[in-house]
Amino acid sequence: MGNATEKQTRKKLVAGNWKMNGSFDSNEALILGFLPEVDDLVDVSVFCPFPYLAQVAKLLQEQGVAHGAQDVSSKASGAYTGEVSVDMLKEFEVTQVLVGHSERRQYHAETSVAVAEKAVAALAAGITPIVCVGETLAEREAGQVEAVIASQLDPVVEHCAKFVENGAWNLVIAYEPVWAIGTGVTASPDQAQEVHAMIRNRLQAMLGTEVAQSTRILYGGSVKPGNASEIFSKVDIDGGLIGGAALSSDDFSGIIRAARG
């Protein structure tokens, strides 16, 4: 699926997920450390914990880097203690949000339908959802990769298809094999490409060629400066959702350089 010409129409995106890490001092040092690598050839985003949204927004003002949140509620408001709505995120000028990260699915029992509802809330508010999908090692070894990805992706596509019709489809998918997140183990570039192509084929079957070819699909799973170039060279891999390496300005800078090509 895909060819080099089609790939060039999708600008690379390097997105840093800080997870539950950070402090005012370390956040500033991290951002100032990688900003010199930012240009208009690669899109760059950082996803910080909620308490740091204001600080990060200020540091990134007019710097050409998007800032996002790590989760969002599907509800607009109400008695949902601890939740954060899309309207609250917009007050911090958030333009992107992660939904369905494997850690949310695992530790907070988020279902694929719940993830789809969050993606709908984000798109309706003009915020780009980065929807995470991926299989465990046991699922991969059992030959269930395609079935697992479909079970996670299909509800999102079904719930969000209406945004294609009204021209507001602005969704990014991140393939994160659970067995490669924070483990130091990385899917081989060919393994990653195989699943990315599978995802794009599924998008094509459900939403058509134009949507499938314009939707960016990121790889996440122990991406580092040393392996990023080879991973990003694959035709259906449009950048990375970076975890541990996003906490080092040197590593994150190296990954941005790799995405630039």
Rank of each mutant, 00 (worst) to 15 (best):
Glu6Ser: 00
Val156Ile: 08
Phe47Tyr: 12
Asn27Gly: 10
Ala180Leu: 09
Lys11Thr: 10
Gln213His: 08
Gly244Lys: 00
Val99Pro: 01
Ala142Pro: 01
Ala66Thr: 15
Met20Gly: 06
Ser73Arg: 06
Ser77Asp: 14
Ile181Ser: 06
Gly78Asp: 07
Gln106Thr: 15
Gly126Asn: 03
Leu98Asp: 07
Arg257Asn: 10
Gly22Pro: 02
Gln152His: 09
Val133Leu: 11
Val38Gln: 00
Asp87Gly: 15
Met20Thr: 05
Pro129Cys: 01
Lys162Glu: 13
Arg260Ala: 13
Leu35Ala: 02
Ile199Phe: 02
Asn166Gln: 15
Ser248Tyr: 05
Leu32Arg: 15
Phe34Cys: 04
Glu110Gln: 08
Ala79Tyr: 09
Met20Ala: 13
Thr111Trp: 02
Val185Cys: 02
Ile242Thr: 03
Asp154Arg: 06
Phe163Tyr: 09
Gly239Pro: 01
Gln152Tyr: 07
Ala66Ile: 09
Asn201Arg: 14
Val86His: 06
Asp71Ser: 14
Phe24His: 14
Asn17Gln: 12
Val38Tyr: 00
Leu218Gly: 07
Ala29His: 05
Ala116Ile: 07
Ile199Ala: 04
Tyr52Gly: 05
Asn17Gly: 01
Leu247Pro: 01
Phe34Thr: 07
Pro129Glu: 02
Gly240Trp: 01
Ala138Cys: 07
Ser151Trp: 05
Ala168His: 11
Arg200Met: 04
Gln213Met: 12
Val235Trp: 02
Tyr52Cys: 12
Phe47Asn: 10
Thr111Val: 10
Ala15His: 04
Cys132Glu: 06
Phe252Glu: 00
Tyr80Cys: 08
Ala15Trp: 07
Arg202Gln: 12
Arg200Asn: 06
Arg260Tyr: 08
Met206Thr: 14
Asn170Tyr: 09
Leu13Val: 04
His159Met: 08
His101Thr: 03
Val94Trp: 12
Ala197His: 04
Ala76Lys: 13
Ala4Cys: 13
Gly167Arg: 13
His159Trp: 02
Thr95Gln: 15
Pro225Ser: 00
Gln106Val: 15
Arg104Val: 10
Asn3Ser: 11
Tyr175Ala: 13
Ser112Ile: 14
Ile173Glu: 05
Pro177Glu: 05
Glu176Leu: 11
Arg10Trp: 09
Glu62Tyr: 10
Ser229Glu: 08
Glu210Thr: 13
Tyr80Ile: 07
Asp39Arg: 02
Lys224Met: 10
Ala54Arg: 15
Glu139Asn: 11
Ala138Lys: 09
Asp250Asn: 06
Leu32Val: 04
Leu30Met: 14
Val157Met: 00
Ala4Gln: 09
Asp87Met: 15
Glu37Tyr: 08
Thr9Trp: 12
Ala121Pro: 00
Val46Ser: 05
Asp238Gly: 13
Pro177Ser: 14
Ile31Tyr: 00
His67Ala: 03
Ala147Thr: 06
Cys160Lys: 05
Lys90Gln: 15
